[in-house]
Amino acid sequence: MTWNWNYVVESLPAIFQGMWITLGLTIACYLFAMLFGFVWTFVRRIPWRPLQMIIAFIMEFIRSTPPLVQLFFLYYAWPMVPYVGLTLDPITVAIIGLGVHFSTYIAEIYRSGIESIDKGQWEAATALNLSLKDKWTKIILPQAIPPTIPMLGNYLIIMFKEVPLTSTIGVAGMLHMANNFGSKNFAYLEPLTLVAVFFLVMSYPTAVLFRKLEQRMNRRFDKNNPTGKIDKGVVT
């Protein structure tokens, strides 16, 4: 058997259809992970040792076990759990499962951003008598978040590449459509290659973009130039 261009064209509509699901789900999972990452970050700051240790353990557990098994747990096992069990549709499982898994990574990024802020910034904000809310929203977060944008961006791409996992619980994304199409015709080569090409075409330019952004950020947040005004011509 060899490459068949007609077959490629035949499989295109199905894969296109799946692509929108994949893209939409990527964004939904990612937003969920960003929000939930904030929850971890702030719960971890509560100054009570036992709670901090429990949270650290839960995060480590989620991070070091396979997202695939976590998806299966939510999809197949959660409905059987007494009292709190719920039957969830595949899309919801996907958003919660992948969202929570990656929120543990995103929380680390937030944390590194917050911890990189000099203690003097907190002290100056206290000396000016700013409220706790103003300290966070006006002083700390505006400095902590921008340097983490390239890293957060990388996780968008990673999320995009993890979303096909949800094909195993029946979410009809690109991979799922290609597999279905392949099994109908007993020929997987063309649809699967097409899916791979689609992934590459979408993720590679995005990755290059974020790499560029990262280089720029590194320059912007250089210690000698902490405000981010880029002096034209001088690259340190």
Binding site: D118, G120, A124, A127, N129, I139, Q143, P226
Partner: peptide, 17 residues
């Protein structure tokens, strides 16, 4: 109470952003 007090630091601690 803090409203009555102001401080200047050794390392300035200006807000860089």
């Amino acid at each position: 109470v803090r409203g009555d007090i102001g401080m200047v630091f050794q390392h300035f601690n200006l807000f860089p952003h």
